[in-house]
Design a protein around this nucleic acid. Structure first.
Lengths: 357, 357
DNA sequence: AATTAGCACTCGACAAGGAAGAGTGCTAAT
DNA sequence: ATTAGCACTCTTCCTTGTCGAGTGCTAATT
């Protein structure tokens, strides 16, 4: 009781909707999504084949508004779905739909054409999502939540500088420039990296720091410095669950009529640029399975007031998993977005399983 | 003659401006940049200390408009600088200004605090530029225009897959997954990469393809495949003069009053997302030295109709050079933008010279 | 009891009209 | 060469009125 007072949820104590009410709500949401204008009882009668008059529909609309599924921008405008209405629509009325086969084929085709290059995967994924869902796409690369050493390479570049390349088990490549006090030639560096590789392969941060590993504890001088940097890079890799965020199709949002108003679009641009916020959102999605839908900033993120997110994780949990999804206006074509996200997530899923198996 | 007819340039046949006209133009541009509203003769009299009446200023304004330096949105509005007016302003009236010392110190400080990591450099650069110039920032990483082999690494990941990491002389790191038909263990791969490293170090694409190099021509089987991929990656690296574009501060543009209108901001978002267009623009800037200013889409890019760009290349030409700059409304604080771009370019210049010697 | 026709009422969108004010261009005087 | 003065132009803003869309309610109908 107390909970449903603060945040109206679809709760058992509400009377279940009659089949006709459900139908009315469904059609109304679809119509509103398509036209972006409040839906009136007359329109509803015209486009639905319920065989009732507009007056009846008006009564039904009044009930649905009473229950919190609809809102009226002002008297004598049509009705608009509320957040709760969208939620009900998505959960109960929409039905599972798949991407049309030709579209699926096209996406599949694109994924099979590219080289095996993570960066390209991510860009392609974002592009495909944006294109298919007609909204803004967000994608993060696969990531393990425990960093495990795989390979180290030291490459002398110039003077006392060397380039350190660190590869982790999840395939992520990290690079950093190091200054080494004595000038070391490539051979010395290669020998050192060979030695370190043998000692470190397969280890986690904790294992590297284990005081019982005499061989590692015994390292001194510049090699010790290198080891320190390795650990700190691995540490950083573990901490940031979401490293890079690939974006695409921001434009798709701004061409929507509800963002004609500049202040609203400013909000969205701001959001898309706020790395931290996006990271928090995507990280949450990472820990959940299946397609998740955040409508109009339900949940802990009030910053997203008038946008919705459709997110899904992909990959192998904890070993190599990432998030992808789309961001669009609350009035979004959820069916399309969800099926696009689901299909592309599957796509990446199988790619990741092929590679990290 | 014929040229100055098609595109109005500041050309010798125009009478030189009198000192007072120059002063009027200067103050008008500054005022307009600050307020974003057309500047009237009365306002001009108030804020300038020319000691003349508004009527005189009206006459001067009429002359400046006649000459094409000013425009009138409509009768009985004040004057606004034309593209030509802006151009004259930045070239002749603005004077060289430097970033204030505290700001310089702050930037310097930030640059000295970070780790030696290219990615972080670029992000920091974009952030600093955006912040300082209050416009959108664009930065590309340093890049050599002849790809020269430095180091190759093959890392077995799983089944018949291996990760190939290619480092070029300019410090750029390229990675790609390879499928090798026979399953090879890490030792075989390491041996192969050692062999290839010895053969390839320092070579360009042309040299690698040289039919006289018996050692390379003699390679067969999967090693030949690897070599092929190396060449193709190097090829790609050479072709794309501008690989990644780091962006920041897009928001700064949309909060400007001239972008209240949604269709205009849509144009800008579109532009910022069109990789190809940006690449062409930045590439042009790469081949030029010093700070370049493109005002309101002068030159070959009509897509930029109502934005201006302030760009500068940095680094060592042909060996490791990139571009950075800011994009803002035509009514931009050019002084600030130019000094920010100049200073940050210097900053990166010295960093690049430290690293690439 | 559910549905519907009918009707009064509300509210936004839009156009027309008009006053206010900002700013110019021109002219004649200095 | 400069300037005061003034008529003229155009935008902005407010008011007013009309139109139409759409609702909510009531009473009649099934």
């Amino acid at each position: 009781m107390s909970e449903s007072d603060s945040v109206k949820q679809i709760a058992p104590q509400d009377p279940p909707l009659t089949p006709r009410q459900r139908e009315v709500l469904r059609i109304l949401v679809e119509e509103y999504v398509a036209t972006a204008t409040p839906v009136a009882s007359g329109t509803l009668q015209r486009i639905s084949d319920l065989g009732v008059s507009s007056a009846t529909l008006r009564n039904e609309l009044a009930v649905l508004e009473e229950l919190g599924y609809l809102e009226q921008p002002h008297t004598s405008a049509g009705r608009v779905p509320s957040l709760r209405g969208y939620r009900y629509f998505v959960e109960q009325l929409m039905g599972q739909q798949d991407l049309p086969a030709p579209e699926r084929r096209m996406i599949m085709h694109q994924f099979h054409q590219i080289r095996l290059n993570l960066d390209q995967w991510m860009e392609l994924t974002a592009a495909v999502l944006a294109q298919t869902s007609q909204a803004a796409a967000l994608v993060t690369p696969p990531h393990a939540n425990r960093a495990q050493f795989k390979h180290l390479e030291l490459i002398s570049t110039h003077d006392a500088l060397c380039l350190m390349i660190l590869v982790l088990q999840d395939g992520s490549v990290h690079q950093e420039m190091l200054t080494v006090t004595p000038e070391l030639d490539q051979e010395t560096l290669s020998a050192a990296s060979g030695q370190l590789n043998a000692l470190l392969v397969g280890l986690t941060v904790d294992e590297i720091n284990d005081p019982n590993r005499a061989a590692l504890q015994g390292l001194t001088g510049w090699k010790r410095q290198v080891l320190k940097r390795v650990v700190s890079l691995m540490d950083a890799a573990e901490k940031t669950a979401v490293d890079q965020i690939y974006r695409d199709g921001l434009m798709n949002i701004f061409s929507q009529p509800e963002f004609q108003d500049a202040s609203r679009s400013l909000q969205v641009v701001e959001m898309m640029e706020r790395q931290q916020l996006l990271q928090r959102i995507l990280q949450r999605a990472l820990d959940t399975s299946g397609v998740q839908i955040i409508i109009g900033g339900e949940g802990p993120f009030d910053e997203l007031y008038d946008v919705s997110l459709v997110l899904s994780s992909y990959g192998i949990p904890n070993r190599a998993s990432g998030v992808l999804g789309v961001l669009g206006p609350t009035r979004m074509h959820y069916g399309r977005a969800i099926s696009a996200v689901r299909y592309v997530a599957q796509m990446l899923d199988s790619l990741v399983k092929d590679v990290y198996g």
